[in-house]
């Protein structure tokens, strides 16, 4: 893997935390891509923005706290994280509720991200 240029990866996460393992898998795929030094961009789209809700308390539910995982992403150089602005507005996720490294982006900018990477993982 050392000899060729790194392929860039866009991970698009579109499912809410509850009722689907896809959100967790998207974050894992992004983290492992970063560990292997592939340039990785993470985009929360549609219902996927609900993974960003603060104050997730998963102790009673016995599941992973995605917001905690998301807050650890800068440690792996996955920053900023991009957030579908229209979806955030739809679910009343004001900017101050989002993790500090979140950037709200328009549909046009999202389309641009889709075109700008070698591979897309759509979760």
């Amino acid at each position: 893997m050392a000899t060729t240029a790194r392929k860039s990866v866009l991970v698009v996460t579109r499912h809410a935390h509850q009722g689907s393992a896809l959100g967790r898998s998207a974050l894992d795929a992004a983290l492992v891509s970063a560990t292997f030094e592939l340039p990785v961009t993470l985009l929360f789209q549609g219902q996927g923005v609900l993974q960003l809700l603060p104050e997730q308390d998963c102790t009673e539910a016995g599941i992973r706290n995605l917001r905690k995982v998301i807050e650890s992403l800068p440690l792996y150089d996955i920053t900023p994280i991009y957030v579908d602005a229209a979806a955030a507005a739809r679910y009343a996720l004001q900017a101050e509720l989002l993790p500090p490294q979140a950037q709200l982006i328009s549909l046009d900018r999202q389309r641009q991200l889709l075109a700008d990477h070698d591979h897309i993982l759509g979760f």
């Binding site: 698009v12 579109r14 889709l114 075109a115 990477h117 070698d118 591979h119 897309i120 759509g122």
Partner: peptide
């Protein structure tokens, strides 16, 4: 097409 976006 160089990439694919799967909507599912």
């Amino acid at each position: 097409w160089p990439q694919q976006m799967a909507w599912h």
